[in-house]
Write a protein that binds this DNA or RNA. Sequence first.
DNA 1: AGCCAGGGTCTGC
DNA 2: GCAGACCATGGC
Length: 279
Amino acid sequence: MNLQITQVQTDILVTIPYFSLTDTLDCGQAFRWTAQPDNSFTGIACGKFLHVAQHGDTVIFYDTTPSDFDEIWRPYFDLDTDYDAIRKALSFQPTIRTAMEHAGGIRILRQEPWETLCSFIISQNNNIPRIKGILSRLCEHFGEELASGVYDFPTAQTLAACTVDDLSPLRAGFRAKYLIDAAQKVSSGEVNFTRIQNASLQDGEAELTQIFGVGTKVAQCVLLFGFHKLDAFPVDVWVKRILAHYFPRGFPKRAKRYGGVAQQYLFHYERMLEKNRLD
DNA sequence: AGCCAGGGTCTGC
DNA sequence: GCAGACCATGGC
């Protein structure tokens, strides 16, 4: 991707057309970003703290270095994927096109597989504010303190050594035992992220669902948000409703290549409609 | 009070 | 295969 990048002291400014920072960080794919009163975001990913803001087409990465930008944030925000081409490929379908007009600035983040796996284990039968709370407490209690009050995501090895009782401060409920099983299977190599990255969608799901508490929906979320498999297609209660309502004859074959991206546009659009309806 | 939240497991038919 | 109970917790 040819990005227009400017460096001002320790801030890096990047021109990203057709991008929405808010929608990308607040659409239920990542749970460790916090919106600030000025609409900027702070968060921790890949072992680094970031303060980021958007003004028009310009995204400002505060207080970072060119190497961190190139090695961490540029891939994390998926800035080298041609979303214009993806949107064009999806625009043949009227409902997806409408959703794109409202949510087309979303990018599928390249999150770390382990954090993504834990996040969506926590997400089951849960709501987004509480998912964020549980993950925040998970990091505070078991993650390395990178700076004052800034905690990294704990490793699988750390959690594999924990008991359900150890996790009680998280108030994760019945999901605590799922986290521990995931940690044990990941740290032992029984579930192998390199193998999943190189596997087909179907084989990747089969490997992930060996974890107690991981079913099809959670596995597809991990494949989409943690392994950047854009054809992964998580079906939750919202998407189920969308499919029944807008796609009674099935999701179009032509859209399946980027099904996960379309799913995310539709999910965010539908939730936005619901929010407006309640206001 | 009762329902729901980016589900999964287990049981019973 | 598929419906239904159950699972912890918290907000409304």
